[in-house]
Nucleic acid binder design. Sequence first.
DNA 1: CTTGACCCTAAAGTTTACTATAGGCTTTAA
DNA 2: TTAAAGCCTATAGTAAACTTTAGGGTCAAG
Lengths: 146, 146
Amino acid sequence: MTSLRIGELAELTQTNNETLRFYESKGLLSAPRRSASGYRMYNQASVDQVSFILRAKRMGFSLKEVGELLSLNVEKADSTCREVKSLAEEKLEVIQAKIEELYRMRSALQQVTDACCGADVSAASCSILHALESDLGVELKNEPIP
Amino acid sequence: MTSLRIGELAELTQTNNETLRFYESKGLLSAPRRSASGYRMYNQASVDQVSFILRAKRMGFSLKEVGELLSLNVEKADSTCREVKSLAEEKLEVIQAKIEELYRMRSALQQVTDACCGADVSAASCSILHALESDLGVELKNEPIP
DNA sequence: CTTGACCCTAAAGTTTACTATAGGCTTTAA
DNA sequence: TTAAAGCCTATAGTAAACTTTAGGGTCAAG
């Protein structure tokens, strides 16, 4: 049972038929073989490819960027290892930068929730809000601007 | 010189006038005071607020989510510490999940670029491409979070 | 006092990433 | 054999997040 119809692939990957056809139309998902009656017949590689697309998307890569990641594959005949590696490393740097920025956000937010009483009282003097003022650089005072 | 016109704020924050007015219209950026002639006059707090919006956006938060983060601020008079803390913790979980998924992507990509020769030869048999073709998806799924 | 760089609003247009609709074949189970 | 469920293409519609356009005021320099 190496063959999946579109609905089965959609369920496996938690998307839907329309999105899969859309990805195919955008060149992100390679066109699978067709059954005699024209049905798309997918395989394990398709599952992996869709998983990759969805994961990259959750990471904040646009479909265009996902396409670039995938193009490492498609254009291999015309590319050198050096070019491929350099593109991969470029994406690695983007990922690294995202991680670091998320770290900064996390530790600021964490510090702040740790300090919050969390009680069922007015937040007017909540430590989270005080901390956001200073640590996160968010304007918090509801004063009219001078 | 605590006052900035829209163009100056745009340059400082690396956006543009239209985007700033758009954020204001969406309630993300508080409406600043106006000059006698109707010009928007911003201050340092505006700079911080725009920076926060852009940072959160780079992290993959939608403008709606950014609005929720900012609402920790605006509605403090109406909220309890419990509510504020719970919203902050919810956002922390989202951030944590993003970090973990980025980790998985990074180590898969890293592993693969490490194995690539990077030489100036055809990529037809490049280890990166082989990895993408066959088992990158599986590796990513099964990898423990560092 | 006019010219050019800025600013204003309102509204329409664009891009990205889907999502839905219409109309029509295919497969499977009763 | 027929009815539901699933698939097909093509095209239109939607939501988010801007971006552009149109038509007009403002202000400092020359």
